[in-house]
Amino acid sequence: MHEERSFEPETIVGHAGNGCSSEQLFPAPESPDTSHVDLSVDLAGVPLKNPVVVASGTFGFGREYGQFYDLSELGAICCKGLTLHPRQGNPAPRIAETPMGILNSVGLQNPGVDGFIAHELPLLQRSDVKVIANISGDTPEEYGVMCERLSAAGVDMIEVNISCPNVKAGGMAYGTRPELAAEVTKMAKSHATVPVMVKLSPNVTDITEIARAVADAGADALSLINTLRGMRIDVSSRRPILKMNVGGLSGPAVLPIAVRMVWEVACAVKLPILGMGGVSTGEDAAQLMLAGASAVAVGTALFADPYAPLKVRDGLAAIAVQQDLSAVNMLTGGIRPW
C-alpha cells in the first residue's frame, strides 16, 4: 500500500528522524481534510457555492446527470445552447474520437427558448444550483429577444455564445469579428436584467481583440474557450467521420490552449472569467484559475466519468489545502509568469 502513495520528498526527510510511525510519515494524499476550505466564488456578482460549472451542451438541462448526483453539488449549470426557435441539429455521425479529445457537430439541437422556459427551467429551479442559460442567435435582435425572455423567467445568468462553429448562419461570424461581437453584446446587455457572460471562440488570430471589444460593449463576464474547429478522416473510406465534415474539438487535448487563452484574456481585460476547455482534474482547473479564471467549467470529461465535476471540485479543495489557502478563490490570477 505504502509504495503506491506519493509524497513530497522534503516531508520524509524532515520527519524521518523524529521517530514517527509510518502512518505519520506517509499520510494518504488522496483525502486531506478540506472541510475548512471556502469553496465559494463570485462570478460577475452571481455567488457560486463552488467554482465548478458544467459546460454548455455536455450536460443537457441537468435531468440525466441528475440521476447520478444532486445538482446542488455543482456551482452552476450552463444549459444546452438555446435558439429562438427549436432546432433539430445536424445529421449523424455527430461525434468522433481523436487523441485525448473529441470532435462534435451536434449543431445546436434544442427545444427553443420558450420550450426551455416551459419544460426545463422549472425543474432546474427546484434544485439549489445557479442556472446559466446559453444562447445563440441568427441576428443581434434574436439575442435581444432571448435575453428578455430568459431574464423574465429568472435564470441567474446568460451566456452569449458567439462562437459555436457548427451553425452556418450567424454563429461563427460574430465570434471572429470584433465589431459584430460588440454589437451582439450590446444587444444582449440592453435586454437582459441578469449578468451577461460572453463566450469566446478560440478560432481567431488574437482572442484579446475580441475580448476587448466585448468588454467595451459592456459584458459582465467572459467564458472561454469554446471548441476548436477540427476534422478527422477515415483513411480507408476517405470520408470524414463527421457527417458535417468538420466539428468542434474539446477534451484534454485543448487544455493547454484554454490555459494560454485565459491567461491572455485575463491580462487584456478586467472582467471575471469562466475558464473551460479540457478540464478533467482539480489540477487542470487550478491551472485555469491561476491563469485568471474565477470559475471553471467541465464538459467533455463528463462522458468518461459522470462524476468528473465533483472530482474536479474535490481536487481543487485538496490543492487549496496543500497550498495552505483558506479559500479556492485565492488561486484566481495567482500565476507567477516568468
Binding site: R94, I95, N104
Partner: peptide, 14 residues
C-alpha cells in the same frame, strides 16, 4: 449510433 454520454445529455447519438 456513435455515442458520447450514453445517457441522453449530449445529443450526439441522433
Amino acid at each position: 449510433e456513435r455515442m458520447g454520454c450514453g445517457i441522453g445529455a449530449c445529443l450526439v447519438c441522433a
